[in-house]
Nucleic acid binder design. Structure first.
Length: 270
DNA sequence: CACGGATCCTGATGGC
DNA sequence: TGCCATCAGGATCCGT
């Protein structure tokens, strides 16, 4: 489910409320993608200082160590003083002095991992190869161009790989490529400099706009407050196969790239 | 090293 | 209480 905008919207929806909270108890009832990395009871007594984001990971800074939370394809967090009884797919929960944080994840591609510090090998294994953050000054145009230059694969797949730029998932890759007028199958290394510049700007614009709109709720995404997103209503190509392009009326096409659906306008994207 | 495919898991949907 | 195939917001691992 969640790409950078959904993860960021989730972060914003509970970071202020959980800051300073002391963990009273924690439980993990089913295996997620990766092991927690410590006994879940060891979280008790620690304090949540802040919540940061790196790519699609949420980093919960504790007074001792940190928790890395990934939402996978179907994960969502909720944080409230009063949550309903836990359901079938609620796999991780932390009761704190300021409310309960809960991870719901039907497909269990998500994860909660404890690391002693961010430089800990456990954390570095997950964070170490991540690319640039697209919504900060870290997203350097020249470095982006160099990153694409050495990749022969289709630009859509290079964006999804996350080692050049992070946070762009299946929805926003199609949307950014539409905005930049680039065919998703174009080899990354063959994009001209002006086209790379256009794509660099498009990624920032699309992701920032999606954060503003509360993310995309295709099926069941909500922030930790329970709010749905609305960006999907203004998608130009994603999930719009056969519908007229909002710019030129040409029917939107879809295709498979690496077993993922890609949507594009054959007229606007060359 | 970079690429493409298989893989983890559950649920919804649509064709037959 | 039908069954089967396909698809879904991610990212790693493995063979080439």
């Amino acid at each position: 489910m969640p790409e950078l905008p959904e993860v960021e919207v989730t972060r914003l929806s509970f970071a202020p409320a959980i800051a300073g909270a002391k963990i009273r108890s924690a439980s993990l009832n089913k295996t997620l993608r990766w092991p927690l990395g410590c006994d879940v009871t060891q979280l008790e007594g620690k304090t949540v200082l802040a919540v940061r984001r790196r790519g699609k990971y949420l980093l919960l800074d504790l007074d001792q160590g940190l928790l890395l939370v990934h939402l996978g394809m179907s994960g969502s967090l909720s944080f409230s003083r009063h949550l309903p009884a836990a359901g079938k797919h609620d796999h991780f929960e932390m009761v704190t002095s300021q409310g309960t944080l809960r991870l719901n994840d039907p497909r269990r591609f998500g994860a909660v991992v404890y690391a002693g510090s961010e430089s800990d090998p456990v954390a570095q294994k997950l964070l170490g190869k991540l690319g640039m953050e697209p919504l900060t000054d870290d997203f350097d145009l020249v470095e982006f161009q160099m990153g694409l230059k050495r990749r022969k694969a289709a630009i859509k797949q290079v964006l999804l790989a996350g080692d050049v730029v992070v946070g762009v998932g299946n929805i926003y890759a199609s949307e950014a490529l539409f905005m930049a007028g680039i065919r998703p199958t174009t080899s990354a290394s063959r994009l001209t400099r002006p086209r790379v510049q256009k794509l660099h700007a498009a990624i920032k614009t699309v992701l920032a706009r999606a954060v503003e709109k509360g993310g995309s709720t295709l099926k069941d995404f909500t922030s930790a407050n329970g709010d749905a997103g609305h960006f999907q209503l203004e998608a130009m190509v994603y999930a719009r196969e056969g519908q007229p392009c909002r710019m030129c009326e040409t029917p939107i096409k879809s295709m498979k790239q690496g077993q993922r659906s890609t949507f594009y306008c054959p007229t606007c994207q060359k």
